[in-house]
Write a protein that binds this DNA or RNA. Structure first.
Length: 306
DNA sequence: GGAATAACCTGGATGC
DNA sequence: TGCATCCAGGTTATTC
């Protein structure tokens, strides 16, 4: 389940491989991997073949590879936009390597320093997708995301909020947004237009660390609780990033196909019935908007939040 | 306009 | 052993 740390691991792995590389060929094997693309597979291949890439950028769970303009100079006008969904993988492979299981799209690249290589987009559940999208100015004129200094963001990502690790993330604006939200705090944490990069795993972990019940109304949280929550969100994301992300199965791996280790550090998510690491009371799991929420009923009281 | 819900999808786990 | 059912969950369109 790729959330911010997992996508950042992928971005960091792709960056040196794609920066300055030229796309020699593109093979769309399954057009379901282009649900975000306005056009068909043939058009996708034609739009990218022969073009050069400038790097890898991420905002929240979205990442994109800016495409150099045909002249080579000036700002990029378009990018390859990607979202991994639930089970998407971007893998670096040797040119002509055997097809991956669930391989959907393959790029053959020529890099001035690394030579020939392949970037493979594989996706078991086909919730992820790639697209060619136009870049537009960011609403706040700040750099679009991690890995870029340009204030240009794919149009499909313009509505996505900045993530808590982004230097341009506005803590006060986030707090004010929460104060107007008549929804459970966990639902708000999962709303990518409010704060991006957080999914079910890290929402549960951050709420556990901040001792906040997932069904507390966002607007009822006092300012100190919001500050504590933001601090714990950042701490959880940074720790997961340092450990290479969370892998429960083969659904999340880095660009080399390796799993992350953060699953060993989880305190609440997926630990139903196991003792809370803080107080020892069993972690409970409740159904929550077609999802699961895991929390400690003692540490995360529905009332006493300060 | 804001909030809640359903649908998309595949494969592993579980129960019979 | 084989079949049916459930579950995982990010995003978005639809509904309320």
């Amino acid at each position: 389940m790729p959330e911010l740390p997992e996508v950042e691991v992928v971005r960091a792995g792709l960056e040196p491989a794609v920066r300055g590389a030229r796309i020699v060929s593109v093979s769309v094997l399954d057009e379901r991997a282009l649900t975000r693309h306005r056009g068909d597979g043939i058009g996708f291949e034609a739009a990218l073949t022969g073009r050069a890439l400038r790097g890898a950028v991420r905002r929240g769970k979205f990442l994109w590879l800016p495409i150099a303009p045909s002249g080579g100079d000036g700002p990029s006008a378009r990018a390859i936009l990607g979202h991994l969904g639930m089970s998407g993988q971007l893998l670096l492979r040797a040119p002509g390597s055997p097809p991956e299981r669930h391989e959907r799209i393959r790029f053959e690249l020529e890099h001035p320093d690394h030579g020939e290589l392949a970037v493979v987009f594989a996706d078991q559940r086909t919730f992820g997708s790639l697209a060619v999208d136009d870049l537009i100015p960011t609403s706040d004129s700040a750099a679009a995301g991690f890995g870029s200094i340009e204030p240009l963001v794919p149009g499909q990502v313009a509505h996505i909020a900045r993530d808590p690790l982004d230097p341009a993330f506005d803590d006060d604006a986030f707090r004010q947004r929460l104060a107007r939200k008549d929804s459970a705090i966990k639902r708000v944490l999962l709303d990518q237009t409010v704060v991006s990069g957080i999914g079910n795993i890290y929402a549960d972990e951050a709420l556990w660390a901040a001792r906040i019940h997932p069904e507390r109304l966002a607007r009822d949280l006092p300012t100190p609780a919001v500050r504590r929550l933001l601090a714990e969100v950042r701490a959880v994301l940074e720790k997961a990033l340092a450990e290479g992300g969370t892998s429960f199965d083969a659904q999340y791996v880095n660009v080399n196909g390796q799993a992350g280790y953060f699953a060993h550090s989880l305190n609440a998510y997926g630990r139903t019935g196991q003792p809370c690491p803080r107080c020892g009371r069993p972690i409970v799991r409740v159904s929550f908007t077609n999802r699961s929420s895991h929390y400690c009923p003692r540490c995360q009281s529905r009332r006493s939040v300060k």
